[in-house]
Design a protein around this nucleic acid. Structure first.
Lengths: 206, 206
DNA sequence: TTAATTCGGTACCGATCGGTGCCGAACCAG
DNA sequence: CTGGTTCGGCACCGATCGGTACCGAATTAA
């Protein structure tokens, strides 16, 4: 959009871009990148193809923006978990969030970052790689947080922050697959609790 | 195919159907149901569209047969794990198999049963539901095996076979997602080992 | 040989894919 | 008002989708 003195010129947009993006998130979440056609997307967003292209660029960019919106919305539990005071609470909140968002009524089961695109043909490679990087970024954030926990004595000195991070992400991804397949929230909460039984005790009795 | 006195009549097939199916498995595994086009499939199988339709029916049936072949081939570790003498060995073999097959060089990373179709548009619903059922079947087999383990005193009397089964499948699915994203075999072996730390001790000191 | 059957290749089907050209409508600055 | 800009709707693009009609080639039974 072009601006003159911080004010947009030309005909104003006839729809709320954020609201439309939220609808797109749900479609990508439920049907994956390749499985979501432009007709599916624009139909759910309530706008025409032309409006979508003007506002979001193309399907790839729409997916990127949808993933960002998903990260700030349904997947905000990740950022929330990272701010917990202890490593154990980080881990507990992370898995609880994965179960909660993955089995939230009214939204697709599972996680957009997993089922959005795991395997894809030529046209979906970009989305697939984007999501793989997204998951790795999550692992990196957890790992950094657990490094700090080791430094603070919140985790035993011998702990492997990278392993703990990948372990949690692996369980969370498995929870997403299970949720996409229809596993119940109760079942997955029990699974999450079981996965946390191995969590190392606090080093300094915290 | 029509037969007369146990012998096929008409022109004989010019390719090995099992070999072609193996190639199709690799394509579905790497690209998913919707991401694998008929040109991709027949190109890899080395046959024409017509031959594929004649030998396998259509894309859906080809996928079904590919899944069966995958179950008997790369995923045969599941059946192998179920025959282990103790519940702990079942669990260990199951996760080791998930890591091994998911990170086997020369084959796509991850698991066909997971990435073949987690989320899909209209045309991929059949494949998605088929795979969800396939995974649930795996859970059921594990659960039955662990029920027996409880009966045999191989697991503590208070154990929940259903929870143990879903826990293992969840971790295995997470391993598949991680492998599809490029996680290394070493990393995932450590994750699998960590997941097994929670495994209940044998009830009668086995 | 003749009849019956299946195989495999070509060429095609209608439908859908992601993406775009065009043009009137709606807004701004002057 | 005029000129400039963006928006949104329609119609359309070439490419690809899964699937098939047709026909000669290859085989068996008789």
């Amino acid at each position: 959009m072009a601006f003159v003195q911080n004010k947009p010129i030309g005909r104003p947009r006839g729809f709320d871009a954020d609201e439309a993006l939220d609808r797109a998130v749900l479609v990508f979440w439920a049907q994956g990148y390749e499985g979501a056609s432009l007709d599916d997307l624009t139909g759910a967003m309530g706008i025409t193809r032309t409006s979508m292209y003007r506002a979001f660029g193309n399907k790839d960019e729409l997916f990127r923006k949808a993933l960002t919106r998903y990260t700030e919305g349904p997947a905000s539990y990740v950022g929330g978990a990272l701010t917990q005071p202890t490593a154990r609470e980080v881990a507990t909140a992370f898995l609880a969030g994965a179960v909660g968002t993955g089995t939230e009524p009214g939204t697709p089961g599972g996680c957009l970052g997993v089922q959005g695109s795991l395997a894809a043909g030529e046209s979906g490679r970009g989305a697939r790689d984007l999501l793989a990087a997204w998951r790795e970024e999550g692992v990196a954030h957890l790992r950094d947080r657990f490094r700090r926990a080791v430094d603070e004595g919140d985790l035993p000195a011998g702990s492997d922050p990278g392993l703990l991070a990948r372990y949690l992400m692996t369980v969370a991804n498995g929870i997403a697959v299970q949720a996409a397949g229809g596993a119940t929230r109760d079942d997955l909460q029990q699974v999450a609790a079981m996965a946390l039984l191995t969590w190392p005790p606090a080093a300094r009795g915290r």
